[in-house]
Amino acid sequence: MTNINDLVANLAQEASAVKPAPHPFLLSLQWMGAAAIYLAVSLAFSGLRPQIVEHLQNVWFAAEIATLLTLFIVTSLSAALLAFPDLHQKRRLAFAPIASFALFLLVMIFAWGADSPPAPLPVHSFECTLSITLMTLLPAVWTFYSLRQYASTHYHLAGCVASLSAFSVGALWMRLHEANDSIAHVVEWHYLPMLGIGLLGLWLGKVFLKW
């Protein structure tokens, strides 16, 4: 008990005024703003896919982009909530990526079904995964760096969600840049690697976010 009293006295001596962390909504908004700028700059350099406006009139392509965007927003928000020990007391919202993932999966299943006759497969394959991963690096670094400033008690999950959020930026860029209509290719080389990234994120969370 004496040790506890000593510790309390020591901690109180060290305690100076601290600036409370920003609200998680604001934090996620900062990340999303930065990601939007990054995406816009990247697309300005790499170029949009030809006839993007016509493609966006295709229901399943538009739905895919919309759900991918939703996934990015929801994972950013969830990562920001997971940065707080008590998830900012918004537990349901912190686990919302499950629902947005289910929605995304549903859209991809319908898009696959609608791809009849199937669009020809592009000649490249893993290059897409590689490009998306490279595009993901910068958002992943800043999200993890930002998360480290807080105190996540769900560091595995925070790492996973942050990685998925960063990867969805890369996936969005690739989908808006690459002239490809093959859903089989998109699923295999754009979205399936997401699972691997999610698992990697679990491990990265343990390595970088444990405190």
Binding site: A21, P85, W211
Partner: peptide, 26 residues
């Protein structure tokens, strides 16, 4: 107690304190 001290910037005083402290304790 050390963890609460380290993470005190993640508490803004706008939400209940106990769930926050118990989250760190657990």
């Amino acid at each position: 107690l050390i963890s609460i001290h380290k993470a005190r910037h993640t508490y803004d005083g706008q939400r209940p304190y106990k769930p926050w402290a118990f989250a760190i304790a657990s």
